[in-house]
Amino acid sequence: MLFNLRHTDNLTASGWKKANPLAPVPTSDQALNWVFVIDTMNFSFWPEEQTQQCEVTYKGTTYTGYMTLCAAIARAMEEGIPITDPKYFSQMSMEELGQVLRSDNETPMPMLQERHQVLALSYLSNIKVTMM
């Protein structure tokens, strides 16, 4: 499938933006860090019951699953929270991450503590690799 798409717009930066409209503009300074933050926390969105999904409404659209994470990060960026800045997210508290990933319904973002841990650990791992 990827081989067939190799000469299309789908595998370009503009195609990436079309595939996920919540992502920053690919040429922005935040784009690479956005991908890092999103990919680091991209796990386990499955609720025990389908009716218990965490939801984030952003710019009039309600999201669930992976897109909930994207919407929460986009919302935080719009609110002026430097969530894509490694100096910020590596030192943020669990409460601060909880505020960033807050749900718009009674079901919270699953595995908040684990998401908090991987952000801090991924940043520390990156520093160690960079220093070698």
Rank of each mutant, 00 (worst) to 15 (best):
T68R: 07
T64M: 00
K59V: 02
P86E: 01
E96Q: 15
S125R: 14
D85L: 04
M132F: 11
E49A: 13
P86K: 03
V56N: 01
I73H: 09
I127E: 11
F36Y: 08
Q52R: 12
L121T: 12
S44Y: 05
L97S: 09
P86L: 01
P82A: 09
F89N: 05
E78W: 00
D85H: 12
T61L: 04
M1D: 06
E95M: 06
S90D: 03
Q30L: 07
H116L: 01
Y88F: 15
I38C: 09
L2F: 14
E106A: 10
F89W: 15
T68W: 00
E96R: 14
K17T: 04
T12M: 04
N20R: 14
A31S: 12
T84K: 06
C54V: 06
M77N: 01
E95S: 13
I38N: 10
V129E: 13
G15W: 06
T12I: 06
W34L: 06
W46K: 04
N20G: 04
M132N: 14
T130N: 07
V35R: 06
T57L: 03
W46N: 03
P86R: 04
T107D: 03
M132T: 15
L22P: 09
Q52A: 13
S125G: 12
N20E: 13
I73Q: 05
